[in-house]
Nucleic acid binder design. Sequence first.
DNA 1: GCACGCATTAATGTATACGTTAACATAGTC
DNA 2: GACTATGTTAACGTATACATTAATGCGTGC
Lengths: 243, 243
Amino acid sequence: MNTSTEARNNETGKAASRSAKTGAARVSQTERAYDQIKRRILENDMAAGFQALEQELAEMLGMSRTPVREALIRLAEEGMVEVRPRHGMRVLPVSADDMREIYEILTSLESTAAELAAARGVTDAEMAELKMTVTDMDAALEEEDLRKWAAADEKFHMLLVKFSNNARLLALVNSFWEQTHRVRLVTLRLRPKPVNSNKDHAAVADAIAKGDREAARRLHHRHRVKSGKMLVALLKEHGLTQL
Amino acid sequence: MNTSTEARNNETGKAASRSAKTGAARVSQTERAYDQIKRRILENDMAAGFQALEQELAEMLGMSRTPVREALIRLAEEGMVEVRPRHGMRVLPVSADDMREIYEILTSLESTAAELAAARGVTDAEMAELKMTVTDMDAALEEEDLRKWAAADEKFHMLLVKFSNNARLLALVNSFWEQTHRVRLVTLRLRPKPVNSNKDHAAVADAIAKGDREAARRLHHRHRVKSGKMLVALLKEHGLTQL
DNA sequence: GCACGCATTAATGTATACGTTAACATAGTC
DNA sequence: GACTATGTTAACGTATACATTAATGCGTGC
């Protein structure tokens, strides 16, 4: 008589950390506000420098100011927006210097992740998953599909961090990647074909497969320093001081 | 920036925006709630596992639920507390495994900071400041003043990160240090005399003075791995599974 | 034309109201 | 006695109310 066990999966279905319980996923307004605003920022619907008052956001999202405020607190803490008392929130632009800072951190954390993954050892399934991203990157380059390449690139980095067996590390790296999302979108078309990145990834994967932690760390570190420098140079070169 | 030195009045201490004419410092309730709750957690007034409802905290702090909620969102984001819908907030205990994760991250970020500081080069004044902490640590050990030693130790690490010229890195390291604060307090008396730590610090300072980035990184990395392992071992040895 | 002070306005910070719903207790069923 | 259904309660999520105060514009004096 009770069919409530049948999941009505018409919800966002995103990376919602809702447990896979039965019943409709009850999403709080605060959560909705957070997801919505973040999505719009990441997809550049709200570009860098975009400003809006709490009330405006509330109307835009069909809710009151309270959940909007709560979402903004989180987004501000993560460095996505800034909240100035009488000016509402502002989507923080990312400068070349911001990118330097973020890449220094990502370089550090990701190469640590590579080392940890190599030290811990990854399962065959995990290694297969990792190598698949390299294959995808190669294929994407062949097809000249930069979007696809970027997706595979991101997947590789995320898997790497996941395999490090450190939840905090994963969350951190994820957060900083998000902050670079817009910038990478733009530079994707300005940079030279990322052939070397593919090679780098393959080499890192190999080192991890061999359990050579020092090599994994060193190779990934070098890879990250290279792409970081390239990106920052690209930004300066094109006068892209604020993204 | 908030060392455990003194439990002064709850002033923000940051902006010093207190103008001469208006005597009262303009601190928002949300900020007061944040500072207060955080201070109590760091000083173990609210021990790990401590629970309280929003309403209780509000009464405790003499304000309404709203600013308490906003403070809790930030504290939760920083990993200090957990907010469960019908159980109020809970001060998150730190397990040995949490310490492993946090130390892996700190090891990574701090050794990067050491490398960056060495690469950038520090001024004479900065180097003097750094060496002063080593002197203080030595003196503290002589006097068997472990509190003082811990303060100097923390100062060294914070200076290191400050000299890296990366604001995000500084904020991150600071945040994770705070999370280990309670644990370090307890282990301070259980661990062997930290003679080697002093030597390590001196060596790192030297490498930075010489501008030897690879040495700075490697030495600090080794230092951190050592103390991290020591700490985790200590926790397990003494059955301190939750702090 | 410019600097300054004051009135106006509106965005915010905070308190409070209120419906919803999870947690707990209690009673009822096998 | 264990388990399930039901009722009660109160903590929360969210909306709203309201006092405060920063930003803005305007008029005044020079």
